[in-house]
Amino acid sequence: MGKIQLTKVRKSFGEVDVIPGIDLTIENGEFVVFVGPSGCGKSTLLRLIAGLEDTTSGVIDIDGKDATNLPPAKRGLAMVFQSYALYPHMTVRKNIGFPLKMAGMDPAEQDKRVERAAKVLNLSNYLDRRPGQLSGGQRQRVAIGRAIVREPAAFLFDEPLSNLDAALRVGMRQEISELHQSLKTTMIYVTHDQVEAMTMADKIVVLNAGHIEQVGAPLELYNFPRNLFVAGFIGSPKMNLIEGAEAAKHNAHTIGIRPEHITVGDGPWEGVVGLSEHLGSDSFLKVAVEGLGTMTVRAPGEVHARHGDRIRLAPAGKIHRFDTNGLAI
């Protein structure tokens, strides 16, 4: 079980409200990603759930029980830290077994569980090494191993992949997703990387300045961003946002068009190519369009446009409309 419910949770450091008040329900077995720019309060929120910080006010329920004032160890949660936080003086075996030892489990049973976790994570050959002798990805797996042996009600991940290089990150991302599918345990995952959020989450919580901007499934956020912040944050490259006369044509204060929803060739907009990046599968163009400003365009395949070329563009897809308050219409 791992249903977590936050009710009016508030956190302030002295005078500063880091989290002014959040209501959120995380269902049992869900993979929830907290995403937002740095300083948005996503890590603080995770630490509040973990019990590493006190809530200033509000209630945190775990499986229907009030856990607001429980110490971290009593909440039945496991956490994977950004720096992995492995115990450098213990072997992998002892690292993974540490929570079991603290729980006073019988040593034979401890061993059995550690072996099982190591097998799942491909760590069986490394059990007697120390963290310092492992690669980044292996350390990451040890940290996960230490979390899974406890069979927690939920896993908390605090930007776990940010210390890995790009290639490893993709691999670990898939491993964590697979782990979720096999364990079916609630996972809460904090990241600033919207690609991680989109690929892994059942439910994304977009945070900004301590507020929840929107909660929803990845494609829901992509297709129906509730406001300008979410529109700009989700999707890569960023959505083009246009104000002024062009927006007024659509009866909106601001309109947004995703780069992949613009075609090159014929169309109403004319501009000069500033920058062109050719990736083979896609081409990214930055085009200075008269009256609209710089537009980012993502075209599939190869587009023969170079710096200084004049090209025409046309919208070909959904146009998102926002009012003066930045809310979607």
């Binding site: 496991a78 956490m79 603290m102």
Partner: peptide
């Protein structure tokens, strides 16, 4: 010593003395 390691031990159920 990074504070995260001590926090990890706290999450792992260690008491203050532990």
């Amino acid at each position: 010593i990074p504070g995260e390691i001590l926090e990890a031990s706290r999450m792992d159920g260690a008491t203050l003395w532990g």
